[in-house]
Write a protein that binds this DNA or RNA. Structure first.
Lengths: 153, 153
DNA sequence: ATTGAAATCATTAGCGA
DNA sequence: TCGCTAATGATTTCAAT
């Protein structure tokens, strides 16, 4: 994995368009890029096979659904060896949406989404602090995401 | 904004399916959920109007395109009042894909994607440290994202 | 990479619970 | 009000070039 892949400017344009709108019709993309719809279809299939396009998803305003608080949580483990056990447990928690192995201060940094500060408190005490392999945590509470965009490849 | 919205179980099922695959045909969703295609269409339109569905995007394996390193960066500002000026500058940088206002230690936490550690170094010295409103930074380098999922609403 | 044809889908209007 | 059906135009998909 992580082998570099050769993509040309047409592939790049396709990726850029689909990052903005995953449901854009292939024929519309074709008109914008200046190739045929069949070509778009072939290119997208190739990008999927190559594992460059992994999937697609809608963007949801979770705040409108009552989950407005994002918290970044740095985790210290008792023993670095337990990291996979910890990840297994974290994976099952609904509040956790992302997790990163990191170098430096923390073994892991996780991103969680919760309804409010009370919910966060309950989550921290009732779920995170129940994992005995976790020694301590540091919380960075965010009330607003100010930038959210796709990488310009 | 951030008003709560009443969504029923059909809306939830639609959101869940589209989070897994934004290009899923409405008729396929209709068959899975047990309603007509027209109903899916109406519901999706309503969810968009309500601002719950904001957009859609493909998921790209950026590591395969040579941008394999994610860094979370905590920023300390010289003066908290300058935060909007800083955000404006950050917004223009290709490497920065997300940014959060946070309480506590940092004024901002940003997520960046870079090719490798050298690229990160150049970015830090050549771009971040050029912003005079930023006092100091702390870096959390991630070589692997181990969890990435959608919130279970 | 394009073309063209067949299957499938999106979209809308009108009907009915 | 909400969901369904039916009809049309657009799109996806694939084989042949």
């Amino acid at each position: 994995m992580a082998e570099k892949y050769e993509i040309d400017s047409t592939d790049k344009k396709i990726i850029k368009l689909l990052e903005k709108d995953a449901r854009m019709p292939f024929l519309e993309m074709a008109r914008k890029i200046g190739v045929s719809g069949g070509t778009i279809h072939q290119r997208v299939e190739k990008l999927k096979e190559a594992g460059i396009i992994i999937g697609s998803s809608i963007k949801v305003d979770y705040a409108k659904l009552g989950h407005g608080v994002v918290v970044l949580l740095g985790l210290h483990l008792v023993n670095a060896r337990d990291i996979h056990k910890v990840i297994d447990k974290l994976e099952k928690m609904d509040e956790i949406v992302e997790a990163y192995y990191t170098t430096g201060d923390y073994a892991l940094i996780v991103k969680i989404m919760v309804k409010d500060i009370n919910h966060f408190h309950e989550f921290l005490i009732g779920k995170i602090q129940m994992i005995k392999e976790i020694q301590s945590t540091e919380s960075f509470i965010s009330l607003k995401q100010v930038i959210d965009k796709s990488l310009n490849v």
